[in-house]
Design a protein around this nucleic acid. Structure first.
Length: 414
RNA sequence: GCGGGUGUAGCUCAGUUGGUUAGAGCGCCAGAUUGUGAUUCUGGAUGUCGCCGGUUCAAUUCCGGUCACUCGCCCCA
């Protein structure tokens, strides 16, 4: 039993869970199209540079979590750890920058070599959207509103909090980063081990540390507000007032930081407390420098990604599919006839289950087990009269229906 | 990557202070009913007690390692 295990951090999506995944991705696609986003699919693997450069060599994702390998012709390839870089690459590769804005949504598997936990897998699935070519804060507002509407349609918006922050433009962020490094460096020895590392990789994250010593030190750290220039402030004010205007609630979180290097200005996360430590359900922000960094024109972008596994755990059980109609032949002659009738009814769009073996009792039992709505019984008695016994398995009522009228009679149950 | 917990039937779990045939409920299969399901009743099957090794006359039980899951950290969706 324990011999054949799936690879660590991967899982089989059995029908019940896959139905939840579909509910999430279909809701995202449908709501996305209301906002003018079209679905796109990019390859699951790319040249390693597609991810390593934009995401940042110092990030955990690139430095220790990517599935990177040389293929048989020696190309350095990587299983995508996220999809923003892939979409941007596709936009550049296909010369799509001629008509702006570009609005894409996607859904698919991503891969990161992390330690698995609930809501955290090595092969996991994300939905996401990217809006490219709009420098105005309206884009940020639209993208966040889209995310909120998807969560709302999934029935879980009220179980999340939208945390919102600005990282400022590049100038502001660089200035602030330097100020933080200058402040923390003299205290380096007093910082936690994690934060000593953060000081080198992502000093903004020290402010969000859970270590008590770090928290104490952070109290007197420089505040980002003092380093935000006028442009950055103007931009963020428009984002917040826009969200206010359309009634999307948010909480300002000055400590919210994005993990990937290419983010600027707006950063946001929808967070829930219902999933333990994997509370971020949707996260994103603005990435104005990314396209240019990847060798394309200097176009701004905003987007987010959401973890399907995490959303799938939160949503209510999706409705089951259409209940089938069970066709139950009794006897060799009926068996033949049933095959033909089944084919006709399925072509007419009815969901038919044809039991494979067993006597009447056995088959009707099985029909009950698969939640069949109707059992169509076809035996010698019926064949002789040219009818079928149509039994309503909910009420127990059974009527005889001429074979010629069977399809019409069953039509209401498709 | 770091620290803690767990691993017994398809599922949820009990149990053995180390001892010969390892249990329950649910589920599954069959019969009561050879042309009528869900209820009920009766009967039945299933485990290399996660894997490898050590201690022991004897290990599912103790010890070590390992794998997987899980909680927290880290990171992130």
């Amino acid at each position: 039993m324990a011999q054949l295990q799936p690879v660590r951090g991967t899982q089989d999506l059995l029908p019940d869970m896959l139905r939840r995944h579909r509910m999430v991705s279909e809701t995202a696609r449908n709501v996305g199209s209301l906002y003018g986003f079209e679905e796109i699919a990019t390859p699951i693997f790319e040249f390693t540079e597609v991810f390593s450069r934009p995401i940042g060599e110092s990030t955990d994702i690139v430095s220790k979590e990517m599935y990177t390998f040389p293929d048989r012709s020696g190309e350095e390839l990587t299983l995508r750890p996220e999809n923003t870089a892939g979409v941007v690459r596709a936009v550049i590769s296909n010369g799509l920058t001629q008509s702006l804005p570009i609005k894409f949504s996607y859904s698919g598997p991503m891969f990161r070599h992390e330690r698995p936990q609930k809501g955290r897998y090595r092969q996991f699935h994300q939905i996401g959207v990217e809006l490219i070519g709009v420098p105005q804060p309206q884009a940020d507002i639209e993208v966040i509103a889209l995310g909120a509407q998807i969560l709302s349609d999934l029935g879980i918006l009220d179980r999340t909090v939208l945390e919102l922050n600005t990282l400022g433009d590049t100038a502001s962020r660089v200035a602030y980063r330097e100020a933080l490094v200058a402040y923390f460096t003299p205290h380096r020895a007093s910082l936690s081990e994690d934060s000593q590392r953060r000081l080198d990789t992502n000093p903004l994250r020290i402010l969000d540390s859970k270590d008590e010593g770090d928290k104490a030190l952070s109290v007197n750290a420089p505040a980002f507000g003092d380093y935000l220039n006028e442009d950055s402030r103007w931009f963020f004010d428009h984002v917040t007032s826009g969200l206010d205007a359309i009634g999307v609630a948010y909480k300002l979180s000055p400590r919210l930081v994005r993990g990937l290097d290419y983010y600027c200005h707006t950063a946001f996360e929808f967070v829930t407390t219902d999933l333990g430590s994997q509370g971020t359900v949707m996260g994103g922000g603005r990435y104005d420098g990314l396209m240019n960094l990847m060798g394309g024109p200097d176009l701004p972008g905003v987007g987010w990604a959401a973890g399907i596994e995490r959303l799938a755990l939160l949503i209510a059980e999706p409705p089951l599919s259409t209940r089938p109609i069970a066709l139950i032949p009794v006897g060799a002659e009926a068996e033949k006839k049933a095959l033909v009738i089944t084919q006709q009814l399925r072509r007419a769009g009815l969901t038919i289950e044809l039991g494979y073996s067993g006597n009447l009792t056995r088959r009707i039992k099985r029909a009950d087990k698969i939640r069949a709505r109707i059992a169509v019984i076809l035996g010698d008695n019926e064949l002789a009269k040219g009818v079928a016994g149509v039994r309503d398995l909910d009420s127990g009522e059974q009527v005889e229906v001429p074979l010629a009228a069977l399809q019409d009679h069953l039509a209401p149950f498709r």
